[in-house]
Write a protein that binds this DNA or RNA. Structure first.
Lengths: 147, 147
DNA sequence: TTGCAATTAAGACGCCATGTCTTAGGATGC
DNA sequence: GCATCCTAAGACATGGCGTCTTAATTGCAA
C-alpha cells in the first residue's frame, strides 16, 4: 500500500516552487505565451530554458492551475486559479494539517503577531467589521459550513 | 548551478508529513520515548515501524524541531518548536512565496472568508484590539467611518 | 519552393526528499 | 546466559522536481 501521505489518496496537487514563478508571471501580466514567460523568467535563456518553461506549463495545465488556448499556432496561457484562491488553499491546508481544520489558531497567531504593524492591524479590523456586502446582514443564521 | 528552490541556498527545512505526526504526538503528550510514540502512531506495529519512528525522530532532531534527552538508556524527546511557532513559520513562508512578504493578503483573505463564523470574527476582533493597547479605549467606535 | 526560425510535443535524466525497512551492536533484567 | 529492549547506521524504492535533448510541425521570408 505504501500509504505515504501524498502518493496515494489523490491529493489535489499543489503548485511547486518553479511553477510558482510562472503563476506569478501570469497573474502579473495576464495571458502570455511560452516565449514571453521565458524571456521574463530566464533572461537570455536559450532552447533549454524555453523547454523548461514548456514543461512547467504543461504540468500546470495538467494540474488545472492554468488554461491553454490552442486556437493559434502560438499557444497562450492564463491562470485558471487566481492568487487569492491559491492563498486560500494553502491556508486551508495549513489549518488541516496543523490546526485540526480550524482557522482560529491561524487567526490568533496573526493577531498576536508583533510584526503586524498598527496600520495593518487597523486594516484588518476594518475588514473584519465589514463582512462582505453592505446589504446582507439579516439572513445569516449559522450556515455555510462544509464538512 | 541547478538552482532549484530547495536544493541550494540552505533553506531552513520544514517538517514533512510523516514527521508532523510525531510532532503532534509530542505536542499533545509532551516528553515521550520512541516506544510510546510508535505505539500511538503505529498500533500493533513491529520492529519496522519502530525503526521508522526512530529515523523520523533522528531527522527531526537534525532539523532542530525536537530535542533528545540521552541521559537515560531510553532516550526521550520533546518538541523544540511549538505548534504555534510552526504555524507562524508556515504563514511567513506563505507570505514570502505568494504575497511578496506581506501578511495583508493573507489577512484580507481570512477576513473575507465566508467560512469564518461570526463568533470567530468576534474573537479575532478582540485579539486584534488587545495586544498593543493596554486598556485604554472606550468600548468601541474607534475609527471614524468608512465608505 | 526552399530554407530558416520559431513553436509544439515527447521524453530522458539526475538529484534528492521521503517514508520504509533490515541489520548489527549494546544495555537491561530475569 | 539468554531473551528482550534499545540505539545506531544505513539500504532501499518511489516519486517529485527542475532540467535538458531531440524530433516533428508550422509560419514566414526570400
Amino acid at each position: 500500500m505504501t500509504w505515504n501521505g501524498r502518493i496515494m489518496s489523490r491529493e489535489p496537487q499543489d503548485v511547486t516552487e518553479a511553477e510558482l514563478g510562472l503563476m506569478q508571471t501570469l497573474w502579473d501580466r495576464g495571458r502570455s505565451s511560452t516565449r514571453q514567460i521565458t524571456d521574463l523568467l530566464y533572461p537570455g535563456g536559450g532552447q533549454a530554458q524555453y523547454a523548461t518553461v514548456q514543461k512547467l506549463l504543461e504540468r500546470l495545465e495538467g494540474k488545472g492551475f492554468i488554461r491553454r488556448d490552442r486556437t493559434l499556432f502560438v499557444h497562450t496561457f492564463v491562470a485558471a486559479v487566481e492568487r487569492d484562491e491559491l492563498i486560500g488553499r494553502r491556508i486551508r491546508g495549513l489549518a488541516d494539517k496543523l490546526c485540526g481544520g480550524s482557522l482560529v489558531p491561524i487567526l490568533t497567531h496573526l493577531a498576536r503577531n508583533p510584526t503586524l504593524s498598527e496600520s495593518e492591524r487597523k486594516a484588518l479590523r476594518e475588514l473584519i467589521d465589514e463582512p462582505d456586502e453592505p446589504a446582507r446582514r439579516p439572513p445569516k443564521r449559522t450556515r455555510g459550513r462544509k464538512g
